[in-house]
Amino acid sequence: MSFREEHELHKRRFGRNLGLGLVLAGFVALVFGLTIAKVSNEDFRVPTQQGEGS
């Protein structure tokens, strides 16, 4: 049991911080996904040296 009732202002701040946290987490996940998508792209592949492996 808490000592005093939480003020509406604290609830609002908590909501804003939680929302921002979720947005940032989503952004990190998106950038990670983008990175995977970009490096998986054919254009991104480093060309192998001619005659390598032959």
Binding site: R4, H7, L9, R12, R13, G15, R16, L18, G19, L20
Partner: peptide
């Protein structure tokens, strides 16, 4: 804390996530 509790309506600069 006392001054916080006196404020019954939202103050400028204290917008919630939904406001943004």
């Amino acid at each position: 804390d006392a001054s916080l509790h006196q404020a019954s309506t939202a103050q400028p600069g204290e917008g919630g996530f939904g406001d943004f």
